[in-house]
Amino acid sequence: MNAPAYNFAYLDEQTKRMIRRAILKAIAIPGYQVPFASREMPMPYGWGTGGVQVTASILGPDDVLKVIDQGSDDTTNAVSIRKFFAKTAGVRTTTRTGEASIIQTRHRIPETPLTEDQILVFQVPIPEPLRFLEPRETETRRMHALADYGLMHVKLYEDIARHGHIATTYAYPVKVDGRYVMDPSPTPKFDNPKMDDFAALQLFGAGREKRIYAIPPHTNVVSLDFEDHPFEPSRTPKSCALCGADDTYLDEVVTDDKGGRLFVCSDSDYCEERRGAEQAK
């Protein structure tokens, strides 16, 4: 049996071309989900195959790659994806946000502001923000075509009527450049304001659902809300037990079964840098 030989960054050139064309169209139509012929990857659907395909299609030998999951470089799936690219593309990897040229992420936007020279690639499970309101693709596509987003506003308003709050806390829908309503992927809504006028290019890949979309740098991104219920990003009102930051998104750690809790930065690199700077003083 012959051992299969794989191309640079795993994907064959024809697949990369197809994905590259989809990325260019996605950039030209900010927030619009471009269908693409997502390939079966050697990792399960739902585990970042969309992000991996996007990264594989843009990655070059000079890139430095960072992969995070839940904000951390050391979570198992982040480790797995980073190893995949180190192996198939031989690229340099890093855990430092500032050193990376491409950052692939699941569920977070780094706390450290990104620069013009960086690209943020999101892994997306369900790219269609209207999907849970209308399961039929034919219908949601029509709504996007007509910019008919009444259904989304009705849903958010029903939340307020029932709970006094909009009950969406992650994957909170945004409107991109005044046109397309878009799912930012399941990032906490704490991260939503970062997307507006972001310096780096943001690319979104949904492998199982076969969609790619994008937000060009410095694009207007607004979280949906109402005048009497303005959008508010939320975080646990505590400080990080490790670095003391009181303005970052926090993970909750259960320390015992008697109600013991402590909170630490979800962005592990940001937290380490802060602690390093503290020690240096």
Binding site: N7, F8, E13, K16, R17, R20, I23, L24, I27, A28, S57, I58, L59, G60, P61, L201, A214, P216, P217
Partner: peptide
């Protein structure tokens, strides 16, 4: 070098479209 040249060209075009 088709693989690397295509990658480099694409990145240039992508940056051009994104900015």
């Amino acid at each position: 070098e088709p693989v690397l040249a295509a990658q480099a060209t694409f990145r240039t075009v992508m940056e051009a479209m994104a900015r």
